[in-house]
């Protein structure tokens, strides 16, 4: 284990540079004093003597995209596909799924560095937040997305997309609407999975296919839908998405081996699930 020491200034935004330099000077002192933490080489996960945290943090699509960018040169602009009327309906569960997928679309547009698409997505995100009754919380983020896209500040756009999704989920949680909050994550994950499988399908390689080895997340989403209550739980769309996740779970067994045929299957299943609420069939 190696101790790491940072003395470099913190990078924030242009307007915060002066603060950043001062903060870095301050950090230099205490970070240098950090101690190396000795970890055990191995623990027994089958007999863990503590508490397993049941909260699940779903990775944002950008986490997977960054790996795909290292392995290949996807033509991200071909992956952007913004629906004309996303969230055309009143079912809040479908609106939450659509919101998540639209944020996922934003992450694809950032990879493509398509400022026009990002601005359009920023506006649609705001429209959708109004339908969800969350426009006050989302408006600052939506404006920031549009502004950052105009500045071609892609890192900031990514930050704001993550913030937008998190703000919506936090607001839903505070309103005791955890059911909707989880659907936002599912919508983003589904859109990301669909575009990633599209690119991998076009030029298959095992190391790229391994990115889909996410059995824990699929189980999490299946359990989440299984716990849904109210009229939304039994809509044809939610039932179809639940079935789609079950089919995905059958493909992703957790052994890490995902074949070209598996990728084709995952791509078609994710597309069909998105056609339930996001894409036009």
């Amino acid at each position: 284990m190696i101790h790491r020491d940072f003395h470099a200034p913190i990078l924030l935004s242009k307007g915060l540079t002066v603060f950043a330099i001062a903060a870095a000077l301050s950090f230099g002192g205490f970070v240098a004093a950090q101690e190396e933490a000795a970890a055990p080489e191995r623990i027994d996960l089958t007999n863990f003597p503590g508490k397993i945290v049941d909260q699940v943090v779903v990775p944002i699509p950008a986490e997977i995209f960054s790996v795909l960018d290292k392995l290949d040169e996807p033509e991200w602009s071909r992956g952007v596909s913004i629906p004309d009327e996303p969230g055309d309906g009143s079912d809040r569960s479908l609106l939450a799924l659509t919101f998540g997928s639209l944020v996922g679309e934003g992450f694809i547009a950032v990879q493509a560095e398509e400022a026009g698409d990002i601005e359009e997505i920023g506006k649609k995100v705001l429209d959708l937040s109004q339908a969800l009754g969350l426009s006050n919380a989302v408006q600052p983020h939506s404006l920031a997305i549009i502004e950052a896209a105009g500045d071609r500040d892609w890192e900031r756009v990514r930050d704001e997309l993550d913030s937008t999704q998190q703000t919506v989920r936090d607001t839903m949680d505070r309103l005791r609407d955890q059911q909707l909050s989880g659907l936002v994550s599912l919508g983003g994950w589904l859109r990301g999975t669909n575009v990633v499988t599209t690119f991998i399908r076009e030029s298959f390689r095992e190391d790229k296919a391994e990115l889909l080895n996410q059995p824990g997340l699929i189980i999490h989403f299946r359990e989440m839908l299984g716990k849904m209550k109210g009229p939304s739980a039994s809509t044809p769309q939610i039932r179809a998405i639940s079935t789609g996740l079950a089919r995905m779970e059958a493909i992703i067994t957790g052994d890490g081996v995902i074949s070209e045929e598996d990728i084709k299957g995952l791509n078609e299943i994710s597309r069909a699930m998105l056609e339930e609420y996001y894409f036009t069939p």
Binding site: F48, P49, G50, V53, Q55, I60, D162, Q214
Partner: peptide, 22 residues
């Protein structure tokens, strides 16, 4: 890139917590 989503809670000191993550 530091994620917005986080884990948090309360715990008895000395009792380890295990977080699963992809």
């Amino acid at each position: 890139e530091v994620r917005e989503d986080t884990w948090s809670g309360e715990v008895e000191p000395g009792k380890p917590l295990l977080v699963r993550h992809q």
